[in-house]
Design a protein around this nucleic acid. Structure first.
Lengths: 128, 128
DNA sequence: CTTGACTCTGTACCTATGTACGGCATTTAT
DNA sequence: ATAAATGCCGTACATAGGTACAGAGTCAAG
């Protein structure tokens, strides 16, 4: 029950090029190529690509996903460590954005108390 | 009180090339070049680059930072409008990160209920 | 005055994640 | 049997944000 690259791509709603791209990146392995070098994929490859896409949505890079995939049979603690790193990164980014949000809100409130449209207090605040 | 490009770069702990790169991108203007085309920077350039770096840490692209910087001589109402755009962008970015955080936390909580270190439930969750 | 440290411009290269295309082989539909 | 579709490989391009030279000019110390 194997399928050509375009069938696979269509099923996953991605381009044929992306399948080959993932192969070049080592995320999926080159399958059996019975007739004249044509790739024929088993259903597991589709699963693997779905895994890749889910992980991508969670903010993992393709490199990290490669590591995740190779950890598939590793102790839970290793996988956990990777996810924890990612979580820490996300949380630190959020902290920075929260700071910025506060700063922008503060700036905007200064504008609201400003009668003089020719000069903006935001600019003064942005200057170090 | 002007300084050469390498003095500036060293003070800011960045490479000389980056200073020129920012110049090419229009983020800083080419300064006075009194002797044979050598750049000599006033202290404001250092301030400007510090501003760029702070903004970068908060997830602004260089293009966006360019726009922020160009607000300097605009009427308050324009500055305000752009700041509001940024605020909306920041909030939307935070929303995305929050979703990610929740997803990662959900994965990790599965690990914590897992006695079997030889097999990770994260991998199962990502599997279709 | 020579040597070594800077500086200039311009271009090429790098990573990440693809996208697109040229040129040729093969398979499938008519 | 032939034309269209699909496949292959290799390479170039795109974006963002740099990084690294090459080759030539200039400045500063001994």
């Amino acid at each position: 029950m194997s399928q050509t690259i375009s069938k696979l791509a269509k099923k996953l709603n991605i381009s044929v090029e992306i399948v080959r791209f993932y192969e070049r990146k080592g995320l999926i392995s080159q399958p059996e190529k019975p007739t004249h070098g044509y790739r024929h994929y088993p259903e597991e490859t589709a699963d693997r690509i779905r895994f890749i896409h889910r992980s991508k949505e969670l903010g993992f890079t393709l490199d990290e996903i490669g590591r995740l995939l190779s950890l598939a049979d590793s102790p839970c603690s290793q996988v956990q460590a990777l996810a924890e790193d990612k979580l820490a990164m996300v949380q630190s980014k959020m902290k920075g954005l929260k700071r910025l949000e506060k700063a922008l809100e503060a700036l905007l409130s200064q504008c609201n108390n400003n009668d003089d449209d020719t000069h903006c207090p935001i600019i003064d605040s942005l200057q170090p």
